[in-house]
Simulated scan of single mutants.
Amino acid sequence: MKHILTATAVALALGLATAGASAQYTGPSSIPAVTVKALQADGKDDQHAVLRGKIVSSVGDERYLFSDGTGQMKVKIKQKVWPAQKPVDANTTVELVGEYDKELIGESHFDVKEIRLP
Protein backbone atom coordinates (compact mmCIF):
# COMPACT_ATOMS: atom_id res chain seq x y z
CA MET A 1 0.00 0.00 0.00
CA LYS A 2 2.85 2.38 0.88
CA HIS A 3 4.43 1.78 -2.55
CA ILE A 4 1.16 2.58 -4.32
CA LEU A 5 0.81 5.88 -2.43
CA THR A 6 4.44 6.79 -3.17
CA ALA A 7 4.01 5.95 -6.89
CA THR A 8 0.81 8.00 -7.01
CA ALA A 9 2.51 10.99 -5.34
CA VAL A 10 5.44 10.82 -7.79
CA ALA A 11 3.08 10.59 -10.78
CA LEU A 12 1.07 13.56 -9.52
CA ALA A 13 4.22 15.64 -8.98
CA LEU A 14 5.49 14.84 -12.47
CA GLY A 15 2.11 15.70 -13.96
CA LEU A 16 2.07 19.08 -12.23
CA ALA A 17 5.63 19.82 -13.34
CA THR A 18 4.75 19.00 -16.94
CA ALA A 19 1.60 21.17 -16.81
CA GLY A 20 3.65 24.14 -15.62
CA ALA A 21 6.20 23.66 -18.39
CA SER A 22 3.55 24.01 -21.10
CA ALA A 23 2.24 27.37 -19.85
CA GLN A 24 2.72 30.33 -22.17
CA TYR A 25 3.95 33.79 -21.21
CA THR A 26 1.43 36.43 -22.28
CA GLY A 27 2.99 39.61 -20.84
CA PRO A 28 4.97 42.37 -22.54
CA SER A 29 7.90 41.62 -24.78
CA SER A 30 11.06 43.43 -25.87
CA ILE A 31 10.48 42.13 -29.41
CA PRO A 32 8.87 45.00 -31.33
CA ALA A 33 5.53 44.71 -33.08
CA VAL A 34 5.86 45.76 -36.72
CA THR A 35 3.66 45.88 -39.78
CA VAL A 36 4.08 43.73 -42.87
CA LYS A 37 4.72 46.87 -44.92
CA ALA A 38 7.53 48.05 -42.59
CA LEU A 39 9.10 44.60 -42.35
CA GLN A 40 9.13 44.14 -46.14
CA ALA A 41 10.56 47.65 -46.68
CA ASP A 42 13.16 47.85 -43.89
CA GLY A 43 13.40 44.38 -42.33
CA LYS A 44 16.73 42.69 -41.90
CA ASP A 45 17.44 38.98 -42.30
CA ASP A 46 16.79 37.05 -39.07
CA GLN A 47 15.15 40.11 -37.46
CA HIS A 48 12.95 39.14 -34.52
CA ALA A 49 9.48 40.66 -34.71
CA VAL A 50 5.82 40.36 -33.77
CA LEU A 51 3.12 40.64 -36.44
CA ARG A 52 -0.55 41.28 -35.58
CA GLY A 53 -3.28 40.38 -38.04
CA LYS A 54 -4.94 37.37 -39.64
CA ILE A 55 -3.82 34.20 -41.36
CA VAL A 56 -6.02 34.42 -44.43
CA SER A 57 -5.19 31.22 -46.30
CA SER A 58 -3.00 28.16 -46.61
CA VAL A 59 -0.64 28.04 -49.56
CA GLY A 60 0.71 24.55 -48.80
CA ASP A 61 3.76 22.95 -47.18
CA GLU A 62 3.46 24.72 -43.79
CA ARG A 63 3.13 28.08 -45.59
CA TYR A 64 0.27 30.51 -45.09
CA LEU A 65 -0.69 33.97 -46.30
CA PHE A 66 -0.80 36.54 -43.48
CA SER A 67 -2.40 39.99 -43.69
CA ASP A 68 -2.34 42.91 -41.25
CA GLY A 69 -4.09 45.60 -43.30
CA THR A 70 -0.80 47.14 -44.50
CA GLY A 71 0.15 44.25 -46.74
CA GLN A 72 0.41 40.49 -47.10
CA MET A 73 3.32 38.15 -46.46
CA LYS A 74 3.91 34.43 -46.58
CA VAL A 75 4.57 32.91 -43.18
CA LYS A 76 5.95 29.48 -42.32
CA ILE A 77 4.23 27.75 -39.40
CA LYS A 78 5.29 24.29 -38.25
CA GLN A 79 2.53 21.99 -36.99
CA LYS A 80 3.86 22.02 -33.40
CA VAL A 81 3.46 25.83 -33.19
CA TRP A 82 -0.32 25.90 -33.69
CA PRO A 83 -2.23 26.57 -30.44
CA ALA A 84 -4.01 23.50 -29.13
CA GLN A 85 -6.60 25.34 -27.05
CA LYS A 86 -8.43 27.16 -29.87
CA PRO A 87 -8.72 26.67 -33.62
CA VAL A 88 -7.48 29.49 -35.86
CA ASP A 89 -9.30 30.50 -39.03
CA ALA A 90 -9.27 33.47 -41.44
CA ASN A 91 -11.33 35.56 -38.99
CA THR A 92 -9.09 34.98 -35.96
CA THR A 93 -6.76 37.83 -34.97
CA VAL A 94 -3.34 36.46 -34.01
CA GLU A 95 0.08 37.67 -32.95
CA LEU A 96 2.89 35.88 -34.71
CA VAL A 97 6.25 35.89 -32.94
CA GLY A 98 9.22 34.91 -35.06
CA GLU A 99 11.99 35.90 -37.46
CA TYR A 100 11.97 37.57 -40.84
CA ASP A 101 13.74 35.41 -43.41
CA LYS A 102 14.88 37.91 -46.03
CA GLU A 103 15.90 36.16 -49.22
CA LEU A 104 18.26 37.74 -51.72
CA ILE A 105 16.86 35.48 -54.43
CA GLY A 106 13.29 34.30 -54.15
CA GLU A 107 10.48 35.27 -51.84
CA SER A 108 11.09 36.42 -48.27
CA HIS A 109 8.86 35.07 -45.50
CA PHE A 110 8.29 35.17 -41.75
CA ASP A 111 9.30 32.06 -39.79
CA VAL A 112 6.78 31.74 -36.93
CA LYS A 113 8.07 30.49 -33.56
CA GLU A 114 4.89 31.19 -31.54
CA ILE A 115 1.25 32.01 -32.20
CA ARG A 116 -0.52 34.13 -29.58
CA LEU A 117 -4.27 34.57 -29.42
CA PRO A 118 -4.87 38.05 -27.91
Results as ranks from 00 to 15, higher is better:
K78W: 11
S29M: 11
A21V: 01
P118F: 01
H3L: 11
K102N: 02
D42P: 07
M73R: 06
Q79I: 02
D101R: 15
I4T: 13
D111T: 02
A7V: 08
K37E: 10
S57C: 03
K2T: 05
M73T: 06
G106Y: 06
G71K: 13
I55A: 12
H109T: 00
K76W: 05
K86C: 03
Q24G: 04
K44F: 08
S108F: 07
H3Y: 06
A13Q: 07
F66Y: 07
V112D: 14
P28C: 08
T6I: 15
Q79L: 01
D42T: 15
M73G: 08
G20K: 00
A41T: 15
L96H: 02
S67W: 05
A19K: 08
A9K: 10
M1Y: 12
A19T: 06
K37T: 08
I4K: 14
A7R: 07
D46S: 15
G60L: 12
P118W: 00
A21I: 00
F66G: 07
G53D: 14
G71H: 13
L39A: 06
G27W: 04
K86P: 01
Q79C: 00
V50N: 14
V56R: 14
D101S: 11
I55G: 12
P118N: 09
G27T: 08
E62H: 05
G20M: 01
T6S: 06
V10N: 01
S58T: 09
R116C: 03
V75A: 04
A21T: 01
